[in-house]
Design a protein around this nucleic acid. Sequence first.
DNA 1: TCTGGGGTCCTAGGACCC
DNA 2: TCTGGGGTCCTAGGACCC
Length: 429
Amino acid sequence: MSGPFALVDCNNFYASCERLFQPELRDKPVVVLSNNDGCVIARSNEAKALGIEMGVPWHLTRERFERLGVIVRSSNYTLYGDMSARVMRVLAAFSPQFEVYSIDEAFLGLGGFEDRLEHHARHLRSTVYQWTGIPVSVGIAPTKVLAKLANKAAKKDQASGGVRALMTVADQEEALSRFQLQDLWGIAGRLSARLQAVGINRPLDLRDADPRFIRERFGVVTERMVYELRGISCLALDEVVPDRKSIIASRSFGQPVLKLDHMREAVVAYVSRAAEKLRRQRLATAHLVVFIETNPFKPADPQRHVTCPAHLPVATSDTGRLAGAAVLALESIWRDGYRYKKAGVMLLGLVPAARVSGGLFDRPDTEASIARMRAMDMLNRRFGRDTVALAGGGVRRPWKLRRERLSNRYTTCWEELLEVPRPGTDVRV
DNA sequence: TCTGGGGTCCTAGGACCC
DNA sequence: TCTGGGGTCCTAGGACCC
């Protein structure tokens, strides 16, 4: 984990992609909306200058946007994925140490370029723009956390020309003093509130805090932040792309879903999308979770938020088999009388498909896990879903569940199930 | 009626990221 | 009427086994 590192970040990535093929959008305020045109997920500089916030719901701001002459686009993820791949190919040529961090960001290891860091970065920047049309900013520093901050500084400061290096302690302190805690990579609202409660109000306070104290109170992740801010690298470049651990397909509905039939169709569609991703990555699974949710923005409506796991006897990437299991799971948790606003399917326990086709389980715990799930299914069938079998094969009664789960989002679900027990339910196992 | 300690697995939830 | 979708890591705690 030797620095220095560069963080290359595409400017306003989705908005920049939209502009590429519609030059008339140049120099205009442009925003890109999420699925269902729900809320703003990207803004051009001109749109930012108009004070348009990230994440604002479009239906609340539509009139204002029209008044301001803001150009609005629905999102086109295929285009963004394609442009991302092009940018990454160019970046990879600028360093042998290279990590794709997100759709629009990459870390580069710049060991060996110490004598010409900024020059190299400016060359990179102009090359990416020339070959792809996407403007990028580059932050350079001895650690990843500082490189992220350097990147922010490059974007904020017009005079930087899109490149900022924080290689000296003096430069680091100058930059750190200009930002807030929440501007640091890995620190958001909750953590910064807790840090401020113990007197750590600014990035420099965190850098100078006692690492042991931080570890005790805030965990190992925040402790690493302290070292990273001091220029001691704790976060290595992840050059090997690790295997996926889960795959999600989910959507919010434009209109609430009231009927099981409609929900079934939606769930099958999600499984189909998720299974496609699964096959593309040559993976398979025997374990999935279905979830359905009501609209949390309408607290006056009855709320329900339920998940249900489903297990197959062998890992597969076959849409039909996965969909069959998912639909059974859905039916077991379905209740009429709610306005469901969101649903989805999560595939877990992913294993390499090749080994599955040979009839082998990749994970030694898979068989035991399936045996437990079978027992749980049996219990659920016999006693209704009020009885829940947990890891290790134990069985708990719902009153216990209820007592333990006050204060989290599943409370409602379980309490409702308790209030309206199914006929024949017997929880005295 | 009282009643151990250590290890492991699993689930759920919190917090964060883009 | 209308508020994204897709991920990761860490931790706490229950339950099992020996």
